Amino acid sequence: MTGRLVGGVDLGATNLRAVVADGGGEVRGRARTETPAGDGDVVGRAVVRTLEDACGAAGVAPDDLAAVGVGSIGPLDRAAGAADDPPNVAAERIPLVAPLEDRCGCEVLLVNDCVAGAVGERYLADGGPDLTYVTLSTGVGAGAIVDGRPLRGHRGNAAEMGHVVVEPGGRECGCGGPGHWEAYAGGQSVPGFAREVARAEGVETGLDLADLDARTVFEADDPLAARVRDRLGAYNALGVAATVHAFDPAVVVFGGAIAVNNPDAVLGPVRERLPDLLAVDAPTVRLASLGEDAVLKGAVAAALTGGTGDPDGGP
């Protein structure tokens, strides 16, 4: 089994990563670049090049791969094998399956990036048969494993929890909807939310509001940063509560750069607030065992199992 090689791709709004792994999930080569600005074809070509670079690092050719898994930002169009107008990038439609099939000559399994994260935690980190993976990164998303099977949905967009409403009539999300979880807790949204809090509530701050990023908000010892972190903790708890009521997981796993880099600030408020928001028992809330590689290794797991998440499946 370990002799078979597969590819894994993690297409995010900010970063694009690829690996080549063996049948046991061990990484043999990897590559990384920034997700390029431009139309969908530009991004699609960058995906192929990044996988080619990972193959080069592993000392193999793309057509040596038995399958390729792709964990991509959504929304997805499974039938077309593409990302369809994702809110956090400029490209309207990103072809993914066809360019990779043309280059590698093998099956390409496309899943939402958070579904990939859930699959990775389930099958490469023993996360159990009922878990939800939540990412706090450029945006907010989720993927669910229920009764041991990943939920994908009609077009590949099951568990798009970043677009649940946590503040009715609230700030506009990148998708255009009001008050979505992502409009507050996504890394692309945090600076704007902090500026709104500063203006509306007159919070004293020593931060440069014109040059603010999510990392500063989470790390700064500052009254404005502290207030925004408290608000984000409340919104994250509401989003997780909706997720728990929808999927009844035993475990909620947090991934993405914001969560991985600020585990206490992210997980602590959720653990504290969640029981009071639930009509069911609270699940375990923990950080992803695979860290920032959860989506990437989940894409590998999808390639190894034919996208089913079944350890006995695969191409």
Rank of each mutant, 00 (worst) to 15 (best):
Leu124Asn: 00
Gly56Pro: 01
Gly40His: 08
Ala66Glu: 12
Ala54Leu: 04
Leu278Asp: 09
Leu131Glu: 07
Pro36Ala: 10
Arg195Glu: 10
Asp53Tyr: 03
Gly23Phe: 04
Val9Pro: 02
Val19Gly: 02
Asp147Gln: 09
Gly71Met: 05
Asn112Lys: 14
Ala159Gln: 04
Leu11Arg: 09
Pro86Arg: 03
Ala226Met: 04
Val20Phe: 02
Pro269Phe: 07
Phe247His: 14
Cys173Ala: 06
Gly309His: 01
Arg152Ile: 12
Met161Asn: 09
Gly206Leu: 09
Asp310Ala: 04
Val240Gly: 01
Glu292Thr: 11
Gly162His: 12
Ala259Asp: 04
Glu219Thr: 15
Pro283Trp: 06
Val140Ile: 14
Cys175Asn: 05
Arg149Gln: 13
Ala200Pro: 00
Ala37Asn: 10
Val190Gln: 04
Thr33Gln: 15
Leu151Ala: 14
Ala142Gly: 15
Glu172Gly: 01
Pro87Ala: 07
Val217Gly: 03
Thr138Cys: 08
Glu107Gly: 02
Ala282Ile: 06
Pro275Gly: 11
Gly179Trp: 11
Asp276Phe: 01
Gly25Lys: 00
Val270Arg: 08
Leu51Lys: 09
Glu172Val: 15
Glu26Asn: 14
Gly8Asn: 00
Pro178Lys: 10
Gly141Tyr: 07
Val119Ser: 01
Ala237Gln: 10
Val300Ile: 10
Gly81Tyr: 09
Ala125Tyr: 08
Gly268Cys: 04
